[in-house]
Amino acid sequence: MDQNQTNLLQGTLDLLILKAIGAGELHGLGISRRIEQITHGTFRVKPGSLFPALHRMEEAGWLSSDWGESENNRRAKFYRLTKAGHRQLGTETRQWAKVALAMADALKAT
């Protein structure tokens, strides 16, 4: 385990998951690996956080899921974005950009 793993900011997990699936459908471990990859290893999402988030987002209508075969022929549940999910990705991305900009400015201001 990575002792210095950066803690996920509140709300960032949802955005990362939406972003990870944005490129195409993935199963749980795939999402985890994809997040690790796109954040260059900064964030490792454990299943104890990942699955509750996936189920919550699916109940919110952002994701839909189907059972299918993984690349090595194991049954797995694949998640993809719904229309609402795409919209949510857009909204959250814009919000994040705003927050990030504001934070960067604020920190420079000293």
């Binding site: 199963h27 749980g28 699955f51 189920h55 109940e59 194991r74 797995a76 549940k77």
Partner: peptide, 30 residues
């Protein structure tokens, strides 16, 4: 959607549970 999901979770608890179990097992298998 939330209400429908809640009803499904409560009414079809066994199926929901089985799927959850399968999903988590598939994760560790992978």
């Amino acid at each position: 959607l939330r209400i429908r999901a809640a009803l499904r979770n409560l009414l079809h608890k066994r199926r929901v549970e089985a799927r959850l179990d399968a999903e988590v097992r598939s994760y560790t298998d992978l």
